[in-house]
């Protein structure tokens, strides 16, 4: 089930979300976006919709559904 929709075209690879997630549901994948940043992937199983990633992301990548 999709809980956390991401727009990784916006991601700048800062890593704040990875450090903040209490469930270790976010990691860096192998996709590089058009800006040249390595982007994140969310494990939808592990996500508990706490919203922490949404709050810390400076580039508005996350939408919690």
């Amino acid at each position: 089930m999709e809980k956390n929709r991401t727009d990784v075209t916006r991601c700048k690879g800062c890593g704040y979300c990875v450090a903040e997630c209490p469930k270790q549901a976010i990691s860096f994948g192998d996709h590089m976006n058009a800006k040249g940043y390595l982007t994140i992937v969310v494990d939808q199983e592990k996500c508990i919709r706490c919203g922490s990633c949404y709050r810390v992301c400076p580039d508005y990548v996350f939408e919690i559904l």
């Binding site: 075209t9 916006r10 700048k12 690879g13 800062c14 890593g15 704040y16 940043y37 919709r49 706490c50 919203g51 949404y54 400076p58 580039d59 508005y60 996350f62 939408e63 919690i64 559904l65």
Partner: peptide, 21 residues
């Protein structure tokens, strides 16, 4: 909890550096 950034800040991408506050 549903969370979505307002359209008035997501309509474009920002020019700030990675990790800028």
């Amino acid at each position: 909890m549903k969370l979505k950034a307002p359209e008035r800040v997501t309509f474009n991408k920002s020019g700030f550096c990675p990790g800028c506050g």
